[in-house]
Design a protein around this nucleic acid. Structure first.
Lengths: 199, 199
DNA sequence: TCAGAGTTTGACCGCTCGGTCAAACCGATC
DNA sequence: GATCGGTTTGACCGAGCGGTCAAACTCTGA
């Protein structure tokens, strides 16, 4: 299995699956090894321990998320079009990687641990929204960009994390294409409404 | 220590502290016992295991949250005033019990486990927002009450859960009285803006 | 004073955890 | 065929986990 990084990739994929569906603490290195079809010691050969493995998984998601967002931010158009693109990128990414939304929320809400990776990524997103909003918004106070960032990113992410707990209250599966399309429409309406109300 | 439920109360308080700050998996029954100043076996005497202990802690919060919200919902006034009251109750409760916001988010994002308690509570909140919005909002589609519920509750809760990860990006402590007041102002503006835009 | 129910305790059990290690394996190079 | 570095493995370690149990303590009512 020495050829290129086959073993490493299999380990990473198994860890991704497991961490996303069960959470950090509920996954053992034995689980990861079994999932990857590899001896436990091999996992430690490729990664410097459980924390490092988890960080590597998260890092992959962050990188992909970052790329998707950078793409949206670089687009031309007026403020409204740019914000729609950002929101769409966020929704698309979360829809394609529901596990990511859960992992991020869990890591943030998880109390202890190294928030540095999360902090760095969140800061990046925040600066993205700040630059998209530009001077349409005051630098300080209740209408500062950072408040819109928290509000918007909560509105996107929470939909996906709440979904399993909303079963029954929703009609139909919130995570079905139709459900997600409806949520996207809500978010677009939200962005339009907020922009129209800005001084 | 047999007098009334003193030992039980001390155990519950210690469990509350520990679960909220460290999370379920990172807390051992030994930790709880030590925190309560009690032998480990006593914890098992009063609670039927770790899961039951955690459920008891969560239940206390849910009860308190439910009461605070019912109070706000029962208030008189027009739609705007009632929604402000609901949001304020939510913010107040989250501010007084930052740990609660974290525990709920973590439980929701946590994948497996018994979501029934969360689901019940979330359903209650949803029906609250639905009844507060009444017929100001369509029953279906992107402007249905449930979308506003997800958006608003995300806007409230995420502020508190993101706070520790936003250090540095924010100036000043997001959880200071001033920070919370500013967030409250943002939420009020949000509610007003959304209401004004409804057909 | 004694019996008995309700508490509290420390010792203990089986198990799984993250992590280590020396030995074996394997494909290339000489 | 010998050598050698990168890879893979199973056996192993100490620690901590959730949970149990019988013995000891404490308070109360007869």
């Amino acid at each position: 299995m020495a050829r290129n990084g086959e073993a490493r990739a299999k380990i990473l994929a198994a860890a991704d699956d497991l961490f996303a569906t069960r959470g950090y603490d509920a996954v053992s290195m034995r689980d990861v090894a079994a999932g990857a079809g590899v001896a436990k010691a091999a996992v430690f050969y490729y990664f410097d321990g459980k924390d490092a493995l988890y960080a590597a998984v998260l890092d992959g998601y962050y990188r992909a998320h970052e790329a998707a967002l950078a793409d949206a931010l670089a687009r031309d158009g007026d403020l409204r079009a740019r914000l729609h693109a950002v929101v769409d990128a966020y929704v698309d990414f979360a829809a394609d990687n529901v596990r990511y939304a859960r992992m991020v929320q869990r890591k943030i809400a998880g109390g202890g641990g190294d928030l540095s990776v999360v902090r760095q990524n969140l800061g990046l997103l925040l600066r993205g929204v700040e630059s998209a909003l530009g001077d349409a918004v005051p630098a300080r106070g209740p209408l500062a960009a950072r408040h819109f960032f928290v509000t918007l990113s909560g509105a996107v992410l929470n939909y996906f994390t709440y979904a399993p707990a909303l079963e029954g209250a929703w009609d139909g599966d919130p995570l079905s294409p139709e459900g997600i399309a409806e949520r996207r429409a809500h978010l677009h309406w939200l962005v339009d409404t907020l922009l129209a109300a800005l001084p």
